[in-house]
Design a protein around this nucleic acid. Structure first.
Length: 572
RNA sequence: GGGCCUGUAGCUCAAUUGGUUAGAGCAGAGCGCUCAUAACGCUUUGGUUGGGGGUUCGAGUCCCUCCGGGCCUACCA
């Protein structure tokens, strides 16, 4: 039994996440966590809301709530939606937790002692009307290069030229529209990542088998231009973790908070502390997962994230952990994803374009979404959601191939033998062939799941479902029943057991359906089938069952059209 | 501008990292079955692997070039 630590990128707090966010980190992480648990490994699966930063403050203001109240509310919303999708986090924490405050301040103190923090003075845009400093992209104005009127202070979206906010003509606050902007002197702390470049480079070189997407982004940042640059880790905001040097004040940093990207990854660890507290464990119980001097040496740590998160997880966070000089557990494997696009464009929160987690659960069961999203996970490139493709896949794979298999087997049995596993009859060559095929496919499925090859795993699982229909067609119990009822009983006995096998194997993808199948079969036996032949005898003759209702309703053309229009976005 | 990824059947994707005749699912066509959610099974049509050039006994895979799509480029997170 191995110990697997799994973290999903933290969903940002400023609203309900869309399906692209879900499939880019939380959902595949859940797939892997469920699979590893099913294989009997000890798993700690952590996630949390990422609650700090300017967008959180603005979202709170828009909602008319104090930012702390807003975050508490939205954390609850995201927690419920995660539960609705069956995300099996061992703990869903908050980056604003007291544990994260302490730990973030601790890391900053250690890094300072190690000489890896530098104080720098700089001039930034301040808006007296808004009463705050403005990040570059929150300053708007006319592009000096192309004349575009809504260029942002970091870059012009129209001509893509990189800008400095002072370059803009007629600059104004993107928040309030205020034009009385001024430049103010402010001091910030920088993490001296440049001093860590060689260690990070060597560490990355030592990793094998990581997705190209992960390593290419990391190497680009390490070797681009003058190499890895230092990064500011503080901000002039009210909401966040106050800058402190461990337990001590940090002279000159009063009123400032740590940058959200400094404290967010640390929340992975703090979330472990939150988990221990919530479980009523010893306060230090989390350390056996996170400290190599406290038993984490044999932990395999896997992170899941979208490609936009890669630099922080391959460089900044490892720099923080290494730089502390303490024996923290570093990530062993980073699984990164491309983007999911929506019907030819991007998901857009501001335009209401695309399907969000709350919408999704409102119109269809979670497993329909889980299956489509995972079987189309954007692993090698961006992948596109279309309603036509979604309808076809859900109807064909889930309703026809899997759902109908369960239906035809259980209903045939009920009609001919009653609602219990029938006895009598023997297995023959057809059963041997099926078992051999399943044993081979099971090995392929497990290999893909071990390698976190999500789409390939889904394809293999589907093939395992198909094998049941092929077998049933070849064995034809409805024909056998007329001549030799015992033979039909043997076929159906195996088929009912096959349903249990499908529930076990499919559970990481479609956990709710797996639960429904086990309930219908009146079994709690979820043991992973190392040997298929043995597994197909788990339900003995006489074992009762009930015919479940349709596992999946089909998506009608009318529904598809309605939803297509409803989520197309635009104003309204 | 620089960098990375990507282009394979009408559609969505594979192809053991240079090795026989490029494979699946969906869609299409034909046949079968009648247990089942008009479901299932079998057979089958469909490809100059974006274009061109090169290396090699051999290229979807490596190199050059052109064309198309996407992403990143460090103060959004």
């Amino acid at each position: 039994m191995a110990r697997i630590l799994i973290t999903s990128a933290l969903p940002y707090i400023n609203g309900v996440k869309h399906l692209g966010n879900l499939v880019g980190s939380m959902l595949p992480a859940d797939l892997f966590a469920r699979y590893m648990r099913a294989r009997g490994h000890e798993v700690l699966f952590l996630c949390a809301t990422d609650e700090h930063g300017t967008p959180a403050e603005l979202a709170a203001a828009k909602a008319g709530l104090p930012v702390a109240d807003y975050c508490a509310w939205m954390h609850g919303v995201q927690k419920r939606l995660g539960d609705g999708f069956g995300l099996s986090f061992d703990h869903f924490g908050r980056s604003s937790s007291p544990q994260n405050h302490r730990l973030t301040q601790h890391f900053a103190g250690r890094l300072a002692e190690a000489g890896l923090i530098e104080e720098r003075s700089e001039r930034q845009v301040y808006s007296p009307t808004d009463g705050r400093f403005l990040p570059d992209r929150y300053v708007e104005g006319t592009c000096p290069n192309c004349g575009y009127a809504h260029a942002r202070g970091d870059q012009c979206e129209n001509c893509t030229k990189q800008l400095d906010p002072t370059d803009l003509i007629d600059p104004r606050s993107a928040i309030s529209g205020a034009t009385d902007l001024e430049m103010r002197e402010t001091k910030h702390l920088y993490l001296r990542q440049s001093a860590m470049q060689e260690r990070l480079d060597a560490w990355l070189d030592g990793q094998t088998g990581w997705p190209v997407l992960t390593t290419s982004i990391a190497r680009k940042w390490l070797h681009d231009g003058d190499g890895l640059r230092d990064r500011g880790i503080t901000r002039d905001l009210d909401w966040g973790i106050p800058v402190r040097k461990g337990d001590a004040d940090w002279p000159g940093m009063e009123g400032k908070v740590f940058y959200v990207w400094f404290d967010a990854p640390i929340e992975y660890i703090a979330c472990g502390a939150e988990w221990a507290e919530a479980q009523g464990l010893d306060a230090d119980a989390w350390q056996r997962w996170w400290r190599t001097d406290q038993g984490a040496g044999d932990v395999r740590y896997v992170q899941f994230m979208g490609k936009d998160n890669v630099p922080f997880h391959t460089l900044s966070f490892p720099a923080t952990l290494m730089g502390s000089g303490e024996p923290w557990k570093l990530v062993d494997y980073i699984k990164s994803f491309n983007y999911l696009t929506y019907d030819g464009g991007q998901f857009s929160t501001s335009q209401g374009r695309g399907v969000f987690m709350d919408d999704a659960l409102e119109i269809l069961p979670a497993d329909a979404w889980r299956w489509w999203l995972l079987s189309h996970a954007p692993e090698t490139g961006d992948s596109e959601f279309t309603w036509e493709g979604f309808q076809t896949a859900v109807n064909k794979d889930l309703a026809d191939v899997l759902g109908n298999f369960v239906s035809r087997v259980t209903k045939f049995c009920r009609t001919r033998f009653g609602e219990a596993v029938p006895g009598g009859g023997e297995w023959g060559p057809q059963e041997d062939a099926l078992i051999a095929e399943l044993q081979a496919r099971l090995a392929a499925y497990a290999a893909h799941m071990d390698a976190i090859e999500v789409r390939k795993s889904a394809a293999e699982l589907r093939a395992i479902w198909v094998a049941g229909n092929e077998y049933l067609q070849a064995a034809a119990p409805w024909a056998a029943f007329k001549e030799d009822p015992d033979r039909a009983a043997a076929i159906i006995r195996l088929s009912l057991n096959l349903i249990r096998l499908y529930a076990v194997l499919s559970a990481p993808f479609i956990p709710h359906t797996a639960d429904a199948l086990c309930a219908a079969l009146q079994t709690d036996d979820r043991a992973w089938p190392d040997d298929v032949k043995t597994a197909l005898t788990a339900l003995p003759p006489g074992h009762g069952f009930s015919v479940p209702g349709n596992l999946f309703d089909k998506i009608t053309d009318a529904q598809r059209i309605e939803w297509h229009d409803r989520f197309a976005g635009g104003r309204g």
